[in-house]
């Protein structure tokens, strides 16, 4: 039922130190990537409360992207360690409930990885296009 008309709405949480800078780099380097994402910057990826993600999905957002620093590079040393475990748990919760956990993705993107950022958005958008609109309505 996915048609060309389906424009995925993706919420992207970018950590201030790495992935947001990486996104910025993609911008100044004029690297093209789909305009499906809406960005919210947090200081660290582990600031992303799982409620942000579930609330977004309940509000009808089609996918949620969480980007942080590579392991060992977190500005706060270990924040991304908690993010990783948390997103794994969150995705398991979605699966048990019956929401496709592929609608949530965690990736590590560093400040120098403009291309990687663009590729991540490209790839996730394609995934969401394939999954179709979010079946959840009404929060």
């Amino acid at each position: 039922m996915t048609t060309a008309a389906f424009r995925p709405k993706i919420l992207a949480f970018l950590c201030n130190w790495c992935s947001y800078a990486g996104a910025d780099l993609a911008g100044v380097s004029r690297i093209q990537y789909p305009s499906t994402i809406r960005v919210i910057r947090t200081m660290c990826s582990c600031r992303v409360n799982p409620q942000f993600v579930t609330k977004a999905l309940l509000m009808g957002v089609d996918g949620v992207l969480v980007l942080g620093c590579h392991p060992g590079e977190c500005h706060y040393i270990e924040g991304n360690m908690y993010t990783r475990r948390r997103v794994i748990a969150l995705k398991r919760m979605l699966e048990v409930l019956g929401i496709n956990p592929d609608r949530v993705r965690l990736e590590w993107v560093s400040a120098s990885e403009g291309t990687r950022f663009a590729d991540t958005v490209e790839s996730f958008t394609a995934t969401i296009r394939q999954l179709g609109p979010n079946p959840l309505r009404g929060g």
Binding site: H70, P71, E78, M81, Y82, R84, R85, E107, W108
Partner: peptide, 18 residues
């Protein structure tokens, strides 16, 4: 508590899985 901790190996692991 599992969501309040992590292991040495996890610090070294590069991907998003455990």
């Amino acid at each position: 508590l599992p969501l309040g901790t992590f292991t040495e190996e996890e610090m070294k692991a590069g991907g998003v899985e455990l």
